[in-house]
Simulated assay, not measured.
Amino acid sequence: MSDTVPENEAPQDTVTETGHDPAAPAPLHVPRTPTGNAEVDAQLERLGDADHLATDGHVEVYEDVHRGLRDALTALDARPGPPAPPSPYGNRS
């Protein structure tokens, strides 16, 4: 048995006749609906970066987006709320 490829047979390549490599990253085309919050929308758009990476690169994008969303939620807690309504009883000593 020989390890050589016969001359009339080309070695099989992973690229198809259309030029598409099935192992290459491919966009998922998942729609991202804007939320109206600029910080959150920026993080959602960042998810699109994963479309152009191999799967082992997705983790970095997902962790970055998770961190950004967590920071946006934390910022909501840090904002001062509306002022408290005045007391109907006034200041009594």
Results as ranks from 00 to 15, higher is better:
A26C: 07
L44A: 06
Q43C: 13
T33I: 15
L44I: 09
T33A: 14
D21K: 04
T18V: 01
A38D: 13
N37P: 00
T33F: 13
L44Q: 06
D41A: 05
P34M: 07
T16A: 10
G36D: 00
D21Y: 02
R32I: 14
V30E: 10
T16P: 00
H20W: 09
V40N: 03
G48T: 14
E39D: 13
T35C: 07
L47I: 12
L44V: 09
A42N: 08
E45V: 08
A26R: 13
L44K: 02
T35I: 07
Q43D: 08
E45W: 09
L28E: 11
P27D: 04
G19C: 13
E45F: 08
H29N: 15
E17N: 07
A23F: 08
D21S: 10
R46Y: 08
A26K: 14
L28V: 07
G36S: 07
V40A: 06
G36E: 01
R46G: 02
P27Q: 02
Q43T: 03
R32L: 15
E45Y: 07
A42D: 12
A42G: 06
A38N: 00
G36W: 00
P27K: 14
A23V: 01
A26T: 08
A42E: 13
P27S: 13
L28P: 00
P27R: 15
R32N: 04
N37K: 02
H29K: 14
L28C: 09
P25V: 02
P31E: 09
G48C: 05
D41S: 02
P25N: 03
P34A: 12
P25M: 04
A42M: 04
T18H: 09
H29T: 09
A24F: 02
L28Q: 12
A38M: 00
L28S: 13
A42K: 09
P22E: 09
E39Q: 14
V40R: 08
V30Q: 05
Q43V: 06
A26G: 01
R32Y: 13
E17V: 09
T33H: 15
A26I: 01
R32Q: 13
A26P: 00
G36L: 01
P31N: 05
L44N: 01
P31T: 06
L47W: 05
D21E: 02
L47Y: 11
G48R: 15
P22T: 07
Q43R: 03
L47V: 12
E17M: 07
A24Y: 11
G48I: 04
E17S: 09
